[in-house]
Design a protein around this nucleic acid. Structure first.
Lengths: 330, 330
DNA sequence: TATAAAAATGGTTACGTATTCATTTTGGTT
DNA sequence: AACCAAAATGAATACGTAACCATTTTTATA
C-alpha cells in the first residue's frame, strides 16, 4: 500500500509537506505543490482514513441504528439520514437491529469511535442509555425515546393516537379496535395511551378483546387480524399503532377477501411516503411538517457534534390526520 | 480516552498481555485473564477499531453504493446486504448515490480502506471501474454491470424484457408501450433489447412514440405517461423497465383517473417485495429464486474477501412472470 | 534434583497520518 | 551587501493497537 512517505520520496520532499499539500495547501509553494500532486497521481495515492482518525481522534463517521427496512418508516428516515450526513461530509455506518441484538450493535459502533450515534431502537428502560452517556459520545434518538432521555426527536405520539381514534369516531364508528406494538417502546406506549384517552373522552365502549399490543411482525399482525374478525362482534374500524402495522393489516384483509374500507376502516400513524401512493391511499396521522424525523434528528446530531453544544434537544412535532381512502363513514 | 496501556497499568501487566486477553485468550493464564478483564471493566475500556485497522490492514468494513431508497428494489437489496454483512461480522458504510455524484462516493469509500465494495450504480462505460481495479479492492456489482466487468450478479435482463412483452402479447394486447430508464445503464439496456426482440418475434407494430427511455425520476415518468396517453392511439399496455417505474406509472394513472388494469395494463420488472402487497399486486417479471440480488452479491463479495479467490463471479438468475392484478386480457 | 520443553509474559516496533517545533529559504529593507 | 522578518520546509513524535521476538516462569521427564 502506497503511503504518504512513498509520495514524499517520489516527489523529493518530506512527508510533512505531503500532508500539508492535502490539508493546508495555502502554506506550500506552487512548484512544490505541483510536484507533490504529480507524485500523488503517479503513485495513485489515497490517504488512509484510519491513520487520520487515529491521530485526530475524529472519524467523520456516524453510526445509525435503525429499525428494519420492511417497515417503511425506516425507509424514509434512513434515506434522509444518510443523504444529509453524506452531504455534510460524514459517512454512515448502518445497522438494522431488532431489539434483541442491540448490545452487539452498540459495541461495534462504539469500537470505531464514531463521532455520533443516531438511533431509533431504544427501549423506555434500556441500559444502553447509560453506556452511551458514559462513553461521552453524542447521540440522539428519533421516533422512540428513553425514559430519561435528553436528546430526542419524535412526533406527538399521544396526540397521534388520540387523533386516530377521534377520526374513526367522527366517521361514525363505535366498534373500534387497537392493534399496536409492545408497550416497552415509548412510541407505541404513548400512541396507545392517546387512543385510550380519546375512547374515554368520547365515552365509547372498548371491550378488552379489541385491544392488541403485540410484536410488529407480519405473522403477529396476521394473527391479530384473525382474532379480531372472528369475534362475535368484530370491530368496524382498526387504529393501527403505526403505518407499517396498518399496511400489514390491509394486506391480510385483502387476502382474506375483506374490502378496505367497505368492510373495515383502517388508520395508521406516521404518514410514511408510500402511504400516499395511489394504490394504497392510507389514511394516517403524521407530522404537520414536511421534514421527516430522521432528517430532524441527523441535523441536530451533527449540530451537537460540531458545536459541542449541550443544550437539550427535545423536539416533538405536532400531528394531524391525513384523510385518504382506507377509512370511511360507518 | 482509555487505551490498552491504561488497562495494562491498572492490571499490572504489559500492554501485550491486554491485547492477548482480547485476541487470543487461550494463551493467557486464568488469574491474569481475570485481572485484565476486571481492569477492562473498571476502566470501561473499549478497543480502538481504527488503531486495529491500521496495524492489521483489515477493516471489517464494506462500502455499499446503492441506488436511492425511493426505489423499492434498493430497499430490498440494502436490507439483505446490511443484514448478511453484519451477521458475518462486517460493518457497512452505506451511500445512496445518484449517477452524478459517483466519484465523491468512491473516494470516501476508498479512503477508508474498506475490505470490499458492493455497488449497483455503475454505468456500462464507467471510468470508476478501472480505479477500483487499480486499487486492488475486491468489488462486485449487483443489478447493473460494467462493460468489462468480472464480478457481477444480475437477473437475466434480456429475458425479463422479453417475457414482459410476451406476457402482454399473450394477454391480447397489440398496442404495447415501453417506459424504461437511460440506456447507458446495462440493466435498462438489456431489458429494452429483450422487449424489442419480443415485439419483433411476434411481428407487432411498435410506433416510435411508444418507446420512452428517460431518467427514472417521478417527474420524468409522469411526463412519459402523459405523453403516451395523449397520443391519438394510446397504448393499452405499458411494459415498465423496472418495478419502481411501474409503481410511478400506476400512481400517476390513478391520479389521472385511469383504472389499472381496466384502462391500461402495466407490468414491471424486479418483483420487489412490495409488489405483492394486497393493495398493489403488481404483475412483474422477477428472479425464479427466492434470494434477492443483494444477498447473492454480498455473499459472493465476502467469499472473495475471505478466501481471496479470484475466479470470476458471474451470476445471472433466471426469471419468470409473476402474474398478479395490474395486467389483464385485452 | 537436573534439565529440557512448553507455557506465559514482556519489550519493542510498525502501521500511516497530523502536529509541533526547529531549521532553512526567500524576499524586502536599509 | 547585510540583515531581519516571513515564508516554506523538514525532523521528530504521538495516536492505540497487533505482531514479532526475547525473556521469564512453569511443567514434565529422566
Amino acid at each position: 500500500m502506497v503511503s504518504s512517505k512513498d509520495v514524499a520520496k517520489h516527489a523529493g520532499v518530506s512527508q510533512t509537506t505531503v500532508s500539508r499539500v492535502l490539508n493546508s495547501p495555502e502554506f506550500v509553494k506552487k512548484p512544490t505543490f505541483d510536484k507533490v500532486m504529480k507524485a500523488i497521481h503517479d503513485l495513485n495515492y489515497v490517504p488512509n482514513g484510519h491513520a487520520r482518525s487515529l491521530v485526530q481522534n475524529k472519524t467523520s463517521t456516524i453510526a445509525l441504528l435503525s429499525g428494519p427496512l420492511h417497515n417503511p418508516f425506516f425507509v424514509d428516515t434512513t434515506s434522509a439520514i444518510v443523504h444529509y450526513a453524506n452531504e455534510m461530509g460524514y459517512r454512515v455506518n448502518v445497522q438494522f437491529v431488532n431489539d434483541e441484538k442491540l448490545n452487539e450493535a452498540y459495541a461495534t459502533a462504539i469500537e470505531h469511535k464514531v463521532d455520533g450515534v443516531i438511533l431509533s431502537c431504544i427501549l423506555l428502560d434500556d441500559p444502553i442509555f447509560e453506556k452511551l452517556t458514559r462513553m461521552d459520545i453524542p447521540f440522539i434518538t428519533y421516533n422512540r425515546k428513553h425514559k430519561n432521555n435528553e436528546h430526542f426527536v419524535e412526533i406527538d405520539n399521544f396526540k397521534a393516537g388520540y387523533l386516530a381514534a377521534q377520526h374513526m369516531i367522527e366517521q361514525g364508528h363505535t366498534a373500534i379496535a387497537w392493534v399496536g406494538g409492545t408497550l416497552t417502546v415509548s412510541t407505541f406506549n404513548n400512541r396507545y395511551l392517546g387512543f385510550l384517552q380519546a375512547m374515554k373522552d368520547y365515552k365509547l365502549c372498548l371491550p378488552e378483546q379489541y385491544i392488541i399490543n403485540t410484536d410488529a411482525s407480519k405473522q403477529a399482525i396476521t394473527d391479530a387480524f384473525h382474532k379480531l374478525m372472528k369475534l362475535e362482534h368484530p370491530p368496524t374500524a382498526i387504529c393501527a399503532g403505526a403505518d407499517s402495522l396498518a399496511l400489514f393489516l390491509i394486506d391480510v384483509a385483502i387476502q382474506e377477501n375483506y374490502t378496505v374500507p367497505q368492510d373495515i376502516s383502517i388508520i395508521g400513524i406516521d404518514n410514511v411516503d408510500i402511504s400516499s401512493h395511489g394504490s394504497i391511499q392510507l389514511t394516517t396521522v403524521g407530522s404537520i411538517s414536511e421534514q421527516n424525523l430522521g432528517y430532524l434528528a441527523i441535523r441536530e446530531l451533527i449540530e451537537m457534534i460540531e458545536n459541542k453544544k449541550n443544550s437539550c434537544i427535545q423536539i416533538t412535532e405536532s400531528v394531524k390526520v391525513f384523510h385518504r381512502s382506507t377509512t370511511r363513514k360507518n
